[in-house]
């Protein structure tokens, strides 16, 4: 659905915002770009949605080249930008209809669709209120609805929950999941929230300083770290290391203070096998725990720093965003 090859953007001849990235997004998946502020996520999206011209490399969406066939691309995709873009002085309904006009969707179809989408994002009761009066979550939902007005095959979401509180964020995730299910749609999204990438995305590309560091499903990335850790103790005094070692999927066993730390692939499946193997030999398991690595550890492993450091309060994020805009355009 989306192909990028050596995609590169250099600003002002010196700032390499996106640095020769190559990736592939498959039909029907939610593909996430995960990285801190300034990593180049928005710049990548802007090239894919034909708003920025790549300095180097090529990209295509649905087989259309983003430079040479930009109009075909624009018609077929939906975009939900990082900032709130709805017109504050207009109502939610007027905003959606304006989008419909810009896409040139026949009026009658557009009216029906606008109402349907407002229903989907549960804004029907507010459709005739000015956007000025909407909360952050409502605005984000309205943006989602606008991005869907042309029934896109590919939807681009740039930081869909930036600056939202935790509850609203979870609600937005729910809408995104529903979208994918009900409208059979491919989603390309960016985020700097780990949980968001973890729960929503089928595959993730970790991007830092404009480069893709690693691509894979959240599971693969975590397994890439060496998998889950199972901690076990047995009542008997004997050393059971070799028994555990023999179980399928076990990578290594370390004994410390009477506890066995077992690194395994796919902990949930392997754990019962270990317990079963020990029982067969007549041992009794007295303690057991399973810890899965989080994406946080994955991130730490690949970039050498915790992504948590990058997150700030909502207010800070707003300020950062303003500065970013000024810095960019000034």
């Amino acid at each position: 659905m989306i192909k990028a090859e050596n995609l590169t953007k250099v600003f002002n001849r010196s700032l390499v915002a996106v640095d020769h990235i190559t990736f592939n997004v498959r039909e029907g998946e939610i593909f996430g770009f995960l990285g801190p502020n300034g990593a180049g996520k928005t710049t990548t999206i802007n090239m894919l949605i034909t708003v920025l011209k790549p300095t180097e490399g090529t990209a295509s969406v649905l087989g259309f080249d983003v430079v040479r066939q930009s109009n075909e691309v624009r018609k077929a995709i939906g975009v939900v930008p990082q900032e709130f873009t709805a017109d504050e002085d207009l109502t939610g309904y007027e905003n959606i209809m304006l989008c419909a006009d810009l896409y040139g969707i026949p009026r009658e179809i557009a009216k029906k669709r606008a109402l349907e989408l407002l229903e989907l994002v549960e804004l029907t009761n507010f459709k005739d209120k000015r956007v000025e009066t909407y909360s952050g979550g409502m605005r984000r939902r309205l943006e989602l609805a606008c991005g869907l007005i042309n029934y896109p095959k590919v939807l681009f979401l740039d930081e869909p929950t930036l600056g939202l509180d935790v509850q609203t964020r979870i609600a937005v995730w729910e809408y995104i999941r529903r979208l994918r299910k009900e409208y059979d749609i491919t989603i390309f999204m960016t985020t700097h929230y780990l949980e968001e990438a973890d729960t929503l995305c089928d595959r993730i590309a970790i991007i830092d300083h404009g480069k893709i560091i690693v691509i894979g499903s959240p599971g693969e990335l975590k397994d890439g770290l060496g998998g889950d850790v199972i901690t076990i103790a047995v009542r008997e005094n004997a050393d059971v290391t070799s028994i555990i070692q023999e179980v399928e999927n076990v990578k290594n066993v370390r004994k410390e203070n009477g506890l066995y730390y077992v690194k395994v692939v796919e902990g949930e499946v392997t754990a019962p096998l270990i317990i079963e193997a020990l029982r067969k030999k007549g041992y009794t398991v007295t303690r057991f725990s399973l810890t899965e690595p989080t994406l946080n550890e994955v991130y730490l492993e690949y970039t050498g720093r915790a992504i948590r450091d990058m997150e700030g309060s909502n207010a800070e994020i707003m300020i950062q965003r303003l500065h970013l805009r000024r810095a960019r355009n000034g």
Binding site: K75, L102, I185
Partner: peptide
């Protein structure tokens, strides 16, 4: 919910786009 048969019914037109954007400005005013 109707399944999104990805029919591409966008027919962006210069005049319609121009008028939609102008109407927005006039409404705000």
């Amino acid at each position: 919910m109707s399944s999104m048969k990805a029919v591409n019914d966008c027919q962006p037109s210069f005049v319609r786009g121009l008028w939609a954007l102008t109407r927005r400005e006039l409404k705000k005013w």
